[in-house]
């Protein structure tokens, strides 16, 4: 079989390698759960489709070279290549594989921000927040704030949520935000959101550090609007979770 593989023209060999490589790359992302760094996990099944189709395409491109000489590719098969893919095409199609393997897989974080964290998310009239307050994430709280016209109703409400620390020169001493990225489809639409938190205990923690904060809301002024601010009693540094995005 090795002898037969040696007969594969270089360009076809590269093409076959790319197809198997892309199949393997998608499979690796699924198995290592790195997929959640890139897309909403709801669409993870699509990557299984990619694994299967890339693999099948690799096999059908390899098959003619594995046959015995008498079964060598027929002229029909050799001429059915509608588009003889050139080296430039191969080079471009290798980019995802090269970036995916050479650059360590990492979710978007505070260093990815091109602006600030949003404190408004859209809520429809039918949105209902049923989750227990102590189990709500940042998105749940922002939705709850959006649904309630009278923000003072959140005074004294206890909450606990996790995210990365975001600081801004405009913030006062002890003030910071805890943020997450919301991903609807993939990282292309990642929207950074966050909640304002007050705690002097977090002053030593670096921006981008993941924390769980627990405390009570008090309504106050933040970035020129009246909004609930968490007065954190406990700030616990945590490891960044494997799946760090929130999904609407």
């Amino acid at each position: 079989m090795l002898a037969q593989l040696k007969n594969i023209p270089v360009r076809d060999g590269v093409k076959i390698a790319l197809l198997f490589g892309l199949s393997g790359y998608f499979l690796w992302n699924i198995l290592t759960e790195n997929l959640s760094n890139y897309i909403n996990t709801r669409f993870g099944w699509l990557s299984w489709v990619a694994v299967a189709l890339f693999f099948a395409m690799g096999v059908v491109n390899l098959l003619p070279y594995l046959r015995k000489k008498s079964d060598a590719p027929t002229p029909f098969i050799q001429t059915n290549s509608v588009m003889p893919n050139g080296w430039s095409v191969m080079l471009i199609c290798a980019i995802p594989l090269a970036l995916g393997t050479l650059i360590p897989s990492k979710p978007l974080g505070v260093e990815s921000l091109t602006g600030t964290l949003n404190t408004n998310v859209s809520v429809s009239k039918t949105t209902v927040i049923t989750r227990d307050p102590l189990k709500r994430n940042i998105l749940d709280w922002l939705r709850a704030f959006g649904l309630e016209a009278d923000k003072t109703r959140f005074n004294g409400v206890e909450a606990e949520f996790s995210g990365f620390i975001y600081r801004n020169p405009e913030f006062t001493e002890g003030q910071f935000m805890v943020g997450r990225f919301i991903v609807s489809c993939c990282t292309a639409d990642a929207d950074p959101v966050g909640l304002p938190v007050y705690s002097l205990a977090a002053e030593d923690l670096a921006e981008g550090q993941w924390v769980t904060v627990r405390g009570k809301f008090t309504v106050g002024e933040f970035r020129d609007s009246i909004t609930p601010i968490l007065q954190a009693e406990i700030v616990t540094p945590i490891e960044q979770p494997k799946n760090s995005y929130l999904y609407p």
Partner: peptide
Amino acid sequence: ISTFTTRFLGIFIEAAPFLLL
């Protein structure tokens, strides 16, 4: 580079199965 790669691969990984289909 890391942010760019994550965003690029996000689009590619989401779109590639549809292009394959």
